[in-house]
Amino acid sequence: MAAVTSIKLDDELKGRVQNLAAARRRTSHWIMREAIEQYVAREEKHEALRQDTVKAWEEFQATGLRATADEVEKWLSSWGSENELPTPVCHE
Protein backbone atom coordinates (compact mmCIF):
# COMPACT_ATOMS: atom_id res chain seq x y z
CA MET A 1 0.00 0.00 0.00
CA ALA A 2 1.36 3.42 -0.95
CA ALA A 3 1.97 5.91 1.82
CA VAL A 4 0.13 9.21 1.61
CA THR A 5 2.41 12.22 1.57
CA SER A 6 1.34 15.78 1.06
CA ILE A 7 3.34 18.54 -0.55
CA LYS A 8 2.63 22.24 -0.41
CA LEU A 9 3.10 24.18 -3.63
CA ASP A 10 2.73 27.90 -4.11
CA ASP A 11 -0.10 28.93 -6.42
CA GLU A 12 2.21 29.73 -9.34
CA LEU A 13 3.92 26.31 -9.31
CA LYS A 14 0.64 24.52 -8.72
CA GLY A 15 -0.79 26.25 -11.81
CA ARG A 16 2.24 25.28 -13.89
CA VAL A 17 1.87 21.64 -12.83
CA GLN A 18 -1.85 21.71 -13.64
CA ASN A 19 -1.20 23.27 -17.06
CA LEU A 20 1.44 20.69 -17.89
CA ALA A 21 -0.80 17.87 -16.69
CA ALA A 22 -3.62 19.10 -18.92
CA ALA A 23 -1.27 19.40 -21.92
CA ARG A 24 0.07 15.87 -21.35
CA ARG A 25 -3.37 14.45 -20.55
CA ARG A 26 -2.10 13.24 -17.20
CA THR A 27 -3.05 14.03 -13.64
CA SER A 28 -1.18 16.58 -11.57
CA HIS A 29 -0.31 13.70 -9.23
CA TRP A 30 1.31 11.78 -12.10
CA ILE A 31 3.37 14.83 -13.16
CA MET A 32 4.63 15.42 -9.62
CA ARG A 33 5.39 11.76 -8.99
CA GLU A 34 7.28 11.49 -12.29
CA ALA A 35 9.26 14.65 -11.51
CA ILE A 36 10.21 13.40 -8.05
CA GLU A 37 11.15 9.96 -9.39
CA GLN A 38 13.42 11.46 -12.05
CA TYR A 39 14.99 13.86 -9.54
CA VAL A 40 15.70 11.10 -7.02
CA ALA A 41 17.20 8.80 -9.68
CA ARG A 42 19.46 11.62 -10.94
CA GLU A 43 20.56 12.55 -7.42
CA GLU A 44 21.24 8.89 -6.52
CA LYS A 45 23.56 8.65 -9.54
CA HIS A 46 25.21 11.92 -8.54
CA GLU A 47 25.75 10.67 -4.99
CA ALA A 48 27.18 7.36 -6.21
CA LEU A 49 29.64 9.26 -8.43
CA ARG A 50 30.58 11.52 -5.51
CA GLN A 51 31.24 8.51 -3.29
CA ASP A 52 33.31 6.81 -6.02
CA THR A 53 35.33 10.01 -6.42
CA VAL A 54 36.01 10.25 -2.68
CA LYS A 55 37.02 6.57 -2.62
CA ALA A 56 39.38 7.06 -5.58
CA TRP A 57 40.93 10.15 -3.96
CA GLU A 58 41.47 8.29 -0.68
CA GLU A 59 43.03 5.35 -2.55
CA PHE A 60 45.36 7.71 -4.42
CA GLN A 61 46.38 9.41 -1.18
CA ALA A 62 47.11 6.03 0.41
CA THR A 63 49.02 4.47 -2.52
CA GLY A 64 50.16 7.32 -4.76
CA LEU A 65 49.25 5.17 -7.77
CA ARG A 66 47.85 6.98 -10.79
CA ALA A 67 47.66 7.13 -14.57
CA THR A 68 48.53 10.43 -16.25
CA ALA A 69 46.02 12.43 -18.25
CA ASP A 70 48.08 11.78 -21.40
CA GLU A 71 47.98 8.02 -20.81
CA VAL A 72 44.22 8.04 -20.29
CA GLU A 73 43.66 10.33 -23.29
CA LYS A 74 45.71 8.03 -25.58
CA TRP A 75 43.75 5.03 -24.30
CA LEU A 76 40.36 6.69 -24.79
CA SER A 77 41.32 7.95 -28.25
CA SER A 78 42.10 4.37 -29.29
CA TRP A 79 38.64 3.05 -28.44
CA GLY A 80 36.87 1.49 -31.39
CA SER A 81 39.99 1.43 -33.55
CA GLU A 82 41.89 -1.59 -34.83
CA ASN A 83 44.75 -0.59 -32.52
CA GLU A 84 42.74 -0.23 -29.31
CA LEU A 85 45.13 0.12 -26.39
CA PRO A 86 44.83 -1.77 -23.08
CA THR A 87 43.74 0.10 -19.97
CA PRO A 88 46.61 2.22 -18.63
CA VAL A 89 48.52 0.69 -15.72
CA CYS A 90 48.62 2.80 -12.58
CA HIS A 91 52.08 3.76 -11.37
CA GLU A 92 53.78 6.13 -8.95
Rank of each mutant, 00 (worst) to 15 (best):
H91R: 13
L65G: 01
L85W: 10
E12V: 15
E58H: 04
E12K: 04
D10Q: 02
V54L: 11
H91E: 09
L76H: 09
N19H: 05
Q18H: 04
T5N: 09
G64V: 02
M32E: 01
E58L: 13
S81A: 06
A56L: 05
A21I: 03
R16G: 01
N19L: 08
Q61C: 14
R66S: 13
K8H: 12
I36V: 09
Q51D: 01
C90W: 12
S6C: 09
A21N: 10
N19S: 13
A67Y: 05
N19C: 06
K8D: 10
K45M: 05
E84D: 10
R26A: 14
T87D: 15
I7G: 02
T53D: 11
A3Q: 01
E43G: 02
W30C: 04
A62M: 15
E47K: 08
K55P: 01
V4F: 04
A56R: 13
A69Y: 12
N19G: 01
I31D: 06
E37F: 13
A56T: 02
Q51G: 02
I36P: 00
G15R: 05
A56I: 00
I31A: 06
W57E: 15
L9P: 05
P86Y: 04
I31G: 03
A62L: 10
D10P: 11
R42V: 04
H29Y: 03
W57C: 11
R25I: 08
I36Q: 00
S6R: 08
G80A: 02
E82I: 08
E92L: 13
P88F: 10
G64P: 03
N83D: 13
W79F: 10
K55N: 12
H91Q: 04
E47H: 13
S28L: 01
V40R: 12
Q18D: 14
E92T: 14
L65N: 08
R33I: 10
V89D: 11
E92F: 15
D70T: 13
E58R: 15
Q61D: 12
K74I: 06
L76E: 12
P86M: 08
L65F: 11
A56V: 09
E59S: 15
P86N: 10
